[in-house]
Amino acid sequence: MVKFLLDEFEPAQLSNLLGQEVAIAGEGVSRALIVTPEQLIATMEALVTKLGFDYLGDLTSVDRGAEGLEVVYHLYSLTNQREIRVKAKVDAETATVPTVTTIWPGADWFEREVYDLMGISFAGHPNMTRLLLPEDFEGHPLRKSYKLQKRV
């Protein structure tokens, strides 16, 4: 049975383990570990090395409107059968977080998709170009500010 990491450890314990001051938001199935873009790589590396999160389940993003953007990582540990949700909060103007392709090479297309549809760029990504939409497409459709056109 898969364990949810936040069930296993107290927030203080976790901060200690990861060597970062991390916050926890939400409750029940919505719980997530919140980090800043600066903390992201160090936290992820600690999660991989200390807690065995070797598998990148999902990488996506949410536009929270006035509260900025969130990059959401769902991690899974094949060795310990644990899962965790990590969120990196970033404001809509800078919209840049460091890439995790250095930790999980498989994050490549995930990050390109987020860049394409949400307009968050990943610093250090080897090929930060659009994935699904054509090169000359304007705007990033998943942003809440993107206006859908009427049927043409």
Binding site: G26, E27, V29, S30, G57, D58, T60, H74
Partner: peptide
């Protein structure tokens, strides 16, 4: 209000919904 990630085993692999 909240969010959920649920994954199932698809014929292609690990299909997740967020």
């Amino acid at each position: 209000v909240g969010e959920v990630y649920h994954h199932v085993e698809n014929s292609k692999g690990d299909l997740g919904y967020y």
